[in-house]
């Protein structure tokens, strides 16, 4: 809805609340509101031209940011799978507690940083583990039900990942009421 024209610029309607929020951010950054708006409109056009979805990209970058802060690193999936197998046989308890603590670290960080921690954690999980075919949460009256399915996860990999997820859920302030993991399938119920 463009209402006026002047020397390569046009007036556009924007929600008042958004402009107030932009004003606060711009002030903090020490730049003008116009620069913030223009930079972001420009990037939005670029995102569209590249055929991406802006919302999906922000989620993805949020997840990457968490990884960078907490010490995430890229690992070849087949090496991870084989090492899970080998080290699981040797040091099951140690590994289970390592993965649980690692989940707790992610959970604690996410709950401090994001307004919707569970949604942020789901995004993170989808970004860091694309070998998972399905990662979903179903809200029910008394509990939330987490489900994760992977056709490529072996038994030890499933057990370790379930520890990681449980650790994260607990650190985000929830209580795990039921947990079940079978090869390639993790189901965790949790509530406040």
């Amino acid at each position: 809805m463009v209402v006026e024209r002047s020397r390569g610029k046009k007036l556009v309607y924007v929600s008042e609340d958004l402009l107030d929020a932009i004003s606060a951010i711009s002030k903090k950054k020490g730049e003008s509101i116009s620069k913030f708006v223009e930079d972001n409109l420009k990037e939005a056009v670029r995102v569209e031209q590249l055929g991406h979805d802006s919302g999906e990209m922000v989620s993805l970058l949020e997840s990457l940011q968490v990884q960078r802060v907490l010490g995430g690193t890229f690992v070849p999936l087949d090496v991870l799978t084989q090492m899970c197998n080998r080290s699981f046989v040797q040091e099951k308890d140690l590994l289970m507690s390592l993965w649980f603590d690692s989940g707790k670290l992610y959970g604690k960080y996410i709950v401090e940083r994001y307004g919707s921690p569970i949604a942020a954690f789901m995004n993170l999980l989808k970004t860091m583990r694309w070998d998972l075919n399905e990662v979903a949460i179903r809200e029910e009256k008394s509990a939330s039900k987490f489900r994760c399915v992977s056709t490529s996860l072996n038994e030890s990999g499933t057990d370790l990942l379930s520890q990681f997820i449980e650790g994260a859920i607990i650190a985000m302030g929830f209580k795990v009421t039921r947990k079940e993991s079978l090869k390639g399938l993790i189901m965790i119920d949790f509530s406040r």
């Binding site: 390569g8 046009k10 008042e16 402009l19 708006v37």
Partner: peptide, 8 residues
């Protein structure tokens, strides 16, 4: 709503 100037 408020109006805001942006590049055409």
């Amino acid at each position: 709503r408020k109006t805001f100037v942006a590049r055409e």
